[in-house]
């Protein structure tokens, strides 16, 4: 039997389970977290501390009827939720979670398919997300949904530019598009991570913040959730969706958050490497547990941000992208290029 095939199938199942499980339980984290932030209890009836709530929600969503309103573009209407979820699962294929770090398989890398153009592939698939918004909004035959789709597209385009520029900066520093190479270049403590200026990337903190904001905007999270601004556009592009159509959009949103957090961790926070490998040998010098810890901390920040700020308007959002983020990202790219490529060339 082909071991490679077994490997593939196992990882495929694992990825889907990871994506779906995260989506389900991040909803729980979000609800519970929001509740505590607002001095409430949150879900508490279904299971201990409401832990079975996501399963109940899932069962409810699946058992509901899919409503197709009159006059919709049915093929596109059905396609849109798939566009929201499938690229998200695809991206997980190439994300390395890191080595196990302990036990008999300490060096075993948890990754479905490592690619040397992994970063490019992630960015390519991530931009499909905009299609889901556009198709969902357009095909619903609902004016609110159309406005939301238009907002979503202009937002997606505006924020993809600084996102990619910042990613290019990192690629330049690490010299590779392979995610594991990028992580290994940051090994050896948190002062080596890309968000610290010590790495030769003088603008590290700025590019980290730029990337984080872009990740928030790309995943349509508050305060950039203009697409589904509930006090303006009811629910935006998924107003007309019910049952699993809505469920897929919902899961897609959370899967995208996990992806965004993973990518930020890999590019800026040293991936699976320990922040202080020599001093505190907790969890080992490199372990996927470090990786998970980092992405969940980032996700918590995202949740906290959502429940703290009001929503921005479309205009100030675009102003932020074009007037602040893109100039900063460009200066950052140029500065890093000068530091890393041109100065060594001149022998400085």
């Amino acid at each position: 039997m082909d071991l490679n095939l077994v490997h593939m199938v196992l990882f495929l199942v694992g990825i889907i389970a990871f994506a779906a499980g995260n989506a389900a339980y991040l909803v729980w984290v979000e609800r519970k977290g929001a509740a505590r932030i607002q001095r409430r209890t949150g879900p508490c009836e279904v299971g201990p501390a409401g832990l079975i709530q996501p399963l109940a929600d899932g069962a409810k969503l699946m058992s509901k009827q899919i409503v197709f309103p009159d006059g919709i573009d049915k093929p596109l209407f059905m396609l849109a939720p798939m566009f929201a979820m499938i690229p998200a699962v695809m991206i997980f294929v190439t994300i390395p979670f890191g080595p196990v770090g302990f036990g008999p398989f300490a060096d075993f890398m948890i990754v479905a398919r490592e690619m040397n153009i992994g970063l490019l592939m992630i960015l390519a698939f991530a931009s499909v997300n905009v299609m889901a918004l556009l198709l969902g909004g357009w095909s619903s035959k609902n004016k609110y949904a159309v406005i939301s789709a238009i907002r979503g597209v202009s937002q997606g385009i505006a924020f993809e530019i600084p996102l990619v520029i910042t990613a290019i900066t990192i690629v330049m520093i690490s010299g590779s598009m392979q995610l594991s190479t990028i992580v290994e270049a940051q090994a050896g403590g948190f002062w080596n991570w890309n968000w610290m200026p010590l790495q030769g990337n003088l603008f590290g903190p700025v590019s980290f913040i730029v990337f984080f904001i872009c990740f928030l905007a790309e995943t349509n999270r508050a305060p950039f959730d203009l697409g589904e601004a509930e006090s303006e556009l009811i629910a935006g592009f998924h107003t007309e969706y019910s049952s699993m159509g809505f469920g897929l959009f919902f899961m897609g949103e959370y899967a995208n958050i996990v992806i965004g957090a993973s990518l930020t961790t890999i590019l800026f926070l040293g991936g699976w490497t320990s922040p202080f490998p020599e001093f505190v040998p907790v969890l080992g010098a490199s372990s996927f547990l470090w990786f998970l810890l980092k992405i969940y901390l980032l996700i918590w920040t995202v949740v906290l941000i959502r429940w703290t700020y009001p929503r921005v308007t479309l205009w100030s959002l675009l102003n932020l992208a074009w007037k602040i983020l893109i100039p900063f990202a460009l200066i950052n790219l140029l500065g890093s290029a000068v530091l890393i490529k041109i100065l060594p060339m001149l022998g400085l």
């Binding site: 505590r36 932030i37 001095r39 409430r40 209890t41 906290l304 429940w307």
Partner: peptide, 21 residues
């Protein structure tokens, strides 16, 4: 101002709920 907001909500997170079940 954004950071101040985050600190306030994070501090509230650790306080006890005020609601009644």
């Amino acid at each position: 101002s954004l950071v101040t907001g985050l600190l306030i909500t994070q501090a509230e997170f650790f306080k006890k709920p005020v609601t009644l079940q």
